[in-house]
Design a protein around this nucleic acid. Structure first.
Length: 263
DNA sequence: CTAGATGTTAAGGT
DNA sequence: CACCTTAACATCTA
């Protein structure tokens, strides 16, 4: 479920496993996922070089290749990384595999292939060209308020809009709204300063706690909404049934009693 | 067999 | 123009 916390965990995983090793071979097995780069160019850019550092912005992960260029990974709905030693092969749904000189492999796995693989010269230029908003964890309270200012849609749609703030998806937007007691159907423009302040605080708290929990459901705080997504679940705060609705085009869980803040 | 699933984007409607 | 919903992408699972 790659939203900001998941991608941050992938970043740390890659940092801990795959930096500073010579790339001996590259296998591109999903040409359709390549964006703005040919299979041949990607292989040439990686082969014989090393991964040197990583950057994350929202749901995008960038990996610098010595001496120049950055590999860009977007994880779509089902993307993930796997670092492993077994020679025998290819984990199913591997779309890009790097073979390191030490015998290990780094695989980018993506069942549904909604993710993307690219090569960029300049990360900041890429972010600007995509009109991506600031990373959700980089915003202070004033920046958060400024980012949301002027958006007339519903708060759920605004928070999920990557051009406004980068990193929140369906799951964590629900979690942030739940933490701040805000009705997901509320209009963004009518939220008062106190509510915006609490939404900002909730965004940081939720994302940081999710990263700390390593995005493993079992380790999430019991007070979170996430473990309770599903039919017939109850609000972990008030014990009443959660409501499931379609808001901003996505399945939304919220507590009608505990998330009253609106206009 | 069908419906729905974490993301993004284009297209069409109000 | 601003906003909303739907469909599409590819595949798996309940």
């Amino acid at each position: 479920m790659p939203e900001l916390p998941d991608v941050e965990v992938f970043k740390r995983y890659l940092d801990a496993t795959s930096l500073h090793q010579r790339i001996r071979g590259v296998d591109v097995s999903a040409r359709r996922m390549l964006q703005g780069v040919s299979s041949r160019e990607l292989v040439a850019a990686l082969t014989g070089h090393e991964l040197a550092e990583t950057r994350r912005h929202g749901k995008h992960l960038f990996v610098r290749i010595t001496r120049d260029g950055w590999l860009r990974l977007h994880f779509g709905m089902t993307g993930a990384l796997a670092y492993y030693k077994r020679e025998d092969a290819t984990l199913s749904h591997t779309r890009l595999r790097l073979d390191f000189a030490n015998g290990y492999h780094l695989a980018f796995i993506d069942v549904r292939m909604f993710g993307a693989i690219g090569l960029v010269d300049d990360v900041d230029a890429f972010l600007a060209s995509q009109h991506l908003g600031p990373d959700a964890l980089d915003l202070d309270e004033a920046g958060f308020r400024d980012a949301l200012a002027g958006h007339r849609g519903g708060i759920k749609a605004t928070l999920m809009n990557q051009h406004v703030i980068a990193g929140l998806g369906n799951i964590y937007t629900d979690e942030v709204l739940f933490a701040a007691h805000v009705d997901p159907r509320a209009a963004t423009e009518c939220l008062d300063d106190a509510t915006l302040r609490d939404l900002h605080r909730a965004t940081h708290d939720v994302l940081e706690r999710a990263i700390d929990a390593h995005v493993e459901l079992i380790r999430f705080p019991r007070s979170f909404l996430l473990p309770h997504r599903g039919a017939d679940e109850i609000c972990p705060r008030c014990g009443r049934p959660l409501r499931r609705a379609r808001i901003a085009g996505r399945t939304t869980y919220y507590c009608p009693r505990d998330q009253p803040r609106s206009c």
